[in-house]
Design a protein around this nucleic acid. Sequence first.
DNA 1: TCTTATCAGATTGTTCAACAATACTTATAT
DNA 2: ATATAAGTATTGTTGAACAATCTGATAAGA
Lengths: 230, 230
Amino acid sequence: MSEPSSSDAYEETRPFRVRSSTAEWAAAILRQRVTQGGLLPGSRLVEDELTAELEVSRNTLREAFRLLGHERLLEHKLNRGVYVRVLSPADVADIYRVRRMIEGSAVRRPDQDPIALTALRDAVADAERAAAASRWLDVGTADLRYHQIIASLNGSQRVNAMMAQLLAELRLVFHTMDPRALHAPFLPRNRELLTLLESGRTAEAEDLLATYLDEAERLLLAAYAQARTS
Amino acid sequence: MSEPSSSDAYEETRPFRVRSSTAEWAAAILRQRVTQGGLLPGSRLVEDELTAELEVSRNTLREAFRLLGHERLLEHKLNRGVYVRVLSPADVADIYRVRRMIEGSAVRRPDQDPIALTALRDAVADAERAAAASRWLDVGTADLRYHQIIASLNGSQRVNAMMAQLLAELRLVFHTMDPRALHAPFLPRNRELLTLLESGRTAEAEDLLATYLDEAERLLLAAYAQARTS
DNA sequence: TCTTATCAGATTGTTCAACAATACTTATAT
DNA sequence: ATATAAGTATTGTTGAACAATCTGATAAGA
């Protein structure tokens, strides 16, 4: 346990409790720990420990568990406790199936928001900058942002929410493997896809994205299988 | 792992409450009321009344509220209570945007599960039978089942879940309008789309579905706007 | 030795009662 | 009539309590 467990650490975020409910506040902290890798997949979340640490009641903490369970970040086993979700290879395959659908549908659209294209350029630039400095975690963050923006080209709030949840799930897998091997191969392709989108060549963009996602899935599954056996 | 086989028969006869959590049991009841139209959009769900009626504690009921809130069936306003969701025209448009993506992606696939095609035939037959008997609510149910099966052609568990949630939301709108005017126009098209799928003419199926969904959205928005003003 | 049974400890599931915080309603004053 | 203020109802949160279930260790039996 490398982080300070005193309540002082949360003093800064306390004001948010006034606006949102305490349960959502607790959920936000746990969500951050899970997506940032502070809590690894398979970890058990014990009620007693967390109520003491977050200084909320058991009932409130359980409401937070429910919220994160519905986001598929936590797994609730009846009478056995709550665990950080462990994704199976089938889950990874399923996630990429949905990504192909969402992102494929996005790049296929002829009318594309110039604001989104600008945001894509920023994300690519951030990723390249982080890669040059070997900050691979930041590369990963920028990459996820890039694909979230791609999804937003669909122009649907619900699709945005689905994609955000999907990428949060993917993060669970990322933390069990080497971020460099994971993200480096796709940096040039993100830029390539961007130029295709900018020039409106949707058919080529669709092709590139399809092979992109297929390869990413293959790479991820291979590395994932290896990490789980070792 | 040796369990007495006699417990199987025992479990079957026991109330559902024993196997899943009480919160999920309560959520199931409320979900049914909302989707079946027993609780209309905008209705307020008061904690005191429901704890008395369902005979569960406030905490458990609130857990159920959270579950249904995440399914977008209930809306939770801080300090102001829980309401059955009221969909805006923008929500309806958004839902159809997602439907176009999901169902479009589904019919575009060349390899289609024969089991799903059989299920589609059943759904169409059920709808036509119900229509002949003027049981329009049943027509609606069969129609939703039809489109859920279409979505399942994507072969993704997550897409199935998204679609189920989407159709549950749509049901909220359906209950405020005449089911016959809503479903009658699309009966023959469901069959037409089915024959196209059976013969593998995916391009034509995609076209038909696109115009189908566009028209359904237009019809729904028009009728919805009218129902809300009267 | 291996399996099965039993039991105590720990953890979760659920309820209840209380109080605080907030929103809503009514009454009062200007 | 509008604005302000008090009072009421409802939700938000807590803590304690007990029941139900799981876990692991120990004891009993084959």
